[in-house]
Amino acid sequence: MKKLLSLSVTLICFSLIPYAQTVIPLYPDSIPNSKQVPDEEKADTSVSGRIMIGKISRPTLTVYLPPKEKANGAAVIVIPGGGYRMVAAVHEGSDVAKRFNDMGVTAFVLKYRLPSDVTMVNKEIGPIQDAQRAIQLVRDRAKEWEIDKSRVGIIGFSAGGHLASTAGTHFNHAYIDAGKKVNLRPDFMVLVYPVISFADSICHMGSRDNLIGKNPSPEKKEEYSNELQVTKKTPPTYLVHAEDDSTVKVQNMLLFATALQKNKVPFDFYLYEKGGHGFGLTNKTSEVKWMDLVQEWMTKSGWVK
């Protein structure tokens, strides 16, 4: 009965997402770092009408294939935000995937595990395990989806931006059993109003608390402050933020950009004057469509051919 209820919740969640295509389990067998507990995943609609999924313990990828005549071989893994407490399934998930499909890019929306001592042995590594597994899975099945393995990127929003930037800065450490020859590095990143730093002065405290606890050691704060983890091998990156973001301070983006510049990693950015936090594809305060700028950057950089 519990399994049927779990399946029903998953189907309800994704039936609410327009144009969703194939939903596949992230792990075909057992989920690593996972406790045997009931699936309590649930979807809610926020006051603003946005679908938010909570208590995720069974991660999935939803595959969005572009029209064959548009497909260009590029792929992107979409990581919605939600403070490591919820996942914004539509405005930072399926809507973004559809926009990439319009560009001819194959998109994969990652429904990642949310940190929990109830569902995981070590909650802080659950999300990065899922991000790395998504990269591995997309490259493993590249032929099936007609994807170029050397053009697999990642895009993250808010706390999803923290997870994406973790994938882009911690790829030399395999959090999953992937084998020595598996490439876990995203080829490019797009980070939209991202949580980057876990420093006390500028961090989004909710994201930090949910991922590494309310009283993390200085070493843990540094480990997950991704501006401190940038190297010359960090993927090329496009950054988007609004100066008046009071939820995730713009200094997060600026610190990451500074680290990229210092390490001579190619990057570009667009900084809105207004727009706050969580605007998704459309910042209503501006006529500038940041995804149009991302498309130009991806084309110029050779990710879209």
Rank of each mutant, 00 (worst) to 15 (best):
Leu11Asn: 15
Gly275Leu: 07
Ile135Asp: 00
Ser48Leu: 14
Asn172Cys: 04
Ile135Met: 15
Asp140Trp: 07
Thr282Phe: 15
Ala88Ser: 14
Tyr27Trp: 14
Asn283Phe: 10
Gly160Gln: 04
Phe198Gly: 04
Val288Arg: 10
Phe108Gly: 00
Phe279Lys: 07
Lys98Pro: 00
Ile135Ala: 00
Pro25Tyr: 14
Thr234Gly: 01
Glu219Cys: 00
Asp209Ile: 12
Asp148Thr: 06
Met189Ser: 03
Lys98Thr: 05
Asn283His: 06
Phe188Arg: 03
Val288His: 09
Pro216Lys: 07
Arg99Asp: 03
Gly179Pro: 01
Ser301Met: 11
Glu243Gly: 09
Ile24Asn: 02
Ser246Asn: 14
Asp268Cys: 08
Val138Thr: 02
Pro18Gly: 09
Pro186Gln: 09
Ser150Ile: 01
Asn283Leu: 00
Ile154Ser: 06
His162Asn: 05
Ala164Lys: 05
Met253Lys: 03
Leu26Met: 09
Ile155Tyr: 05
Leu65His: 12
Pro127Ile: 06
Val182Met: 13
Lys249His: 13
Gly160Asn: 01
Leu11Thr: 13
Ile17Phe: 09
Met189Leu: 13
Val265Thr: 07
Leu65Met: 12
Leu184Ser: 01
Ala242Tyr: 06
Ser286Ala: 10
Asp140Asn: 12
Phe267Leu: 13
Val96His: 04
Thr247Met: 10
Ser150Asp: 13
Val250Phe: 13
Val78Arg: 03
Asn72Pro: 03
Cys203Thr: 15
Arg185Gly: 04
Ala164Met: 01
Gly168Gln: 01
Asn72His: 05
Glu223Met: 12
Gln132Asn: 06
Thr45Tyr: 13
Ala167Gly: 03
Glu287Leu: 12
Ile147Arg: 02
Asp44Thr: 15
Phe269Asp: 00
Asn252Leu: 04
Ile31Lys: 03
Arg85Leu: 14
Ser225Ile: 06
Gln229Ala: 15
Val265Tyr: 06
Tyr270Gln: 01
Met103Tyr: 14
Leu255Lys: 15
Ile24Val: 15
Lys249Gln: 13
Thr285Leu: 00
Gln21Ile: 00
Val37Ile: 12
Tyr84Ser: 02
Val63Glu: 02
Ile31Ser: 03
Pro127Asn: 06
Phe171Arg: 04
His162Gln: 03
Ser46Glu: 09
His173Lys: 15
Glu287His: 10
Phe171Leu: 05
Ala174Gln: 12
Gly81Asp: 02
Leu26Glu: 01
Lys3Trp: 10
Met253Ile: 00
Gly168Leu: 03
Ile17Glu: 14
Gly168Ser: 05
Leu281Asp: 01
Ser57Ala: 09
Pro236Phe: 05
Asn122Ala: 11
Met1Ala: 15
Thr22Phe: 07
Gln129Pro: 03
Phe267His: 14
His173Tyr: 12
Arg141Asp: 11
Phe157Gln: 01
Phe188Tyr: 15
Pro235Val: 04
Leu26Ile: 07
Asp245Leu: 02
Met253Leu: 11
Met86Tyr: 13
Asp177Lys: 14
Phe256Pro: 00
Leu184Thr: 02
His91Val: 00
Pro266Ala: 05
Gly276Phe: 05
His204Leu: 09
Lys55Cys: 08
Lys221Cys: 11
Ser197Asp: 07
Lys214Gln: 13
Lys42Phe: 08
Gly81Phe: 04
Leu254Lys: 11
Val96Thr: 10
Val109Asn: 04
Tyr84His: 07
Val87Phe: 05
Leu254Asn: 09
Gly126Gln: 11
Phe157His: 08
Pro38Asn: 09
Lys249Glu: 11
Val105Gly: 00
Ser286Cys: 04
His277Asn: 06
